[in-house]
Design a protein around this nucleic acid. Structure first.
Length: 258
DNA sequence: ATGGCAATGTTTCATTGA
């Protein structure tokens, strides 16, 4: 089973790129963030033509999440949002697929350390940690996929000195990320040796992508049960190339049959 | 030290992202 997460930064703009990628890679489950599209306008027919059922929870302009499930797989128990956290932003969507509780997350950006949006990010992460702990007690197999807006360690940052203490790299955000792990999750990317300087996001400006000045902020976290089944993980840098890319590349994790 | 790019709707700028 191939799992993927991709911050698509406008599904409307990126639909042709997404469809081409789905047809090339044939992942089983794809979690999308920043779809920026209301449910009534979600391109479900185009996604179905590519061979995927779509479950989505969107809004205009900002945020919006979706889970795509390859035809032939069943999805059930679709759950938008976090039950105990009221949020105007559509950032969480869960579904059960092939016995796996798949949770698509779009963690707030936080804008700048100590800003109002930063405080919202930290409060949101507290709620998410509680939600994930609850999901891990309810479901034996949990995968949390998405844009976490946190680079967990200095090796996930192209220039750790430049980024030290800044948004996505601050100690407080990294501690919040570690609380997701201590809830009972494993960063699938680090289950294997990886090439140095592997990132999932690059700024659109200043030739950041060709210079590989990026951060690894998109992650696939697996419960212990699923980590034991994980045989490969990585980031599809090629999907960031070409005209009108998302600023994020898809992250992937492959599980053997359980 | 700052902005630099891209998407969106409030559209020919302001806001947000990361």
């Amino acid at each position: 089973m191939l799992l993927a997460a991709w911050n698509i930064n406008s599904l409307n703009v990126r639909l042709p790129r997404l469809v081409g990628w789905l047809e090339a890679r044939r992942p089983d489950v794809v979690c999308l963030q920043e779809t920026k599209i209301v449910d009534a306008k979600f391109p479900a027919a185009e996604v179905a033509d590519a061979g995927y059922a779509a479950y989505f929870w969107g809004q205009k302009t900002y945020n919006g999440v979706a889970i795509l499930v390859r035809a032939g797989l069943e999805a059930s128990d679709i759950t938008p949002g976090m039950p105990d956290y009221a949020d105007d932003h559509k950032r969480v969507l869960a579904a059960t697929v092939a016995g796996i509780r798949v949770i698509c997350v779009y963690v707030p950006n936080g804008q700048a350390v100590d800003s109002e949006k930063y405080r919202y990010k930290l409060a949101w992460c507290d709620a998410a940690a509680a939600y994930l702990r609850d999901q891990l007690t309810t479901y034996p197999e949990v995968a949390v996929l998405g844009d976490f807006n946190v680079a967990p360690e200095d090796r996930d940052v192209h220039d750790p000195v430049l980024w030290e203490g800044r948004i996505m790299c601050s100690d407080t955000e990294r501690a919040a990320f570690r609380r997701f792990l201590s809830a009972g999750l494993v960063d699938s990317f680090r289950l294997f040796d990886q090439p140095p300087n592997t990132f999932s996001w690059w700024d659109y400006r200043q030739l950041a992508f060709p210079k590989n000045r990026g951060l690894r902020i998109d992650h696939i976290l697996l419960s212990q049960s699923l980590a034991a089944r994980c045989v490969a993980s990585g980031i599809d840098r090629n999907a960031r190339k070409g005209a009108r890319p998302s600023d994020h590349a898809p992250v992937l994790a492959e599980l053997r049959d359980g």
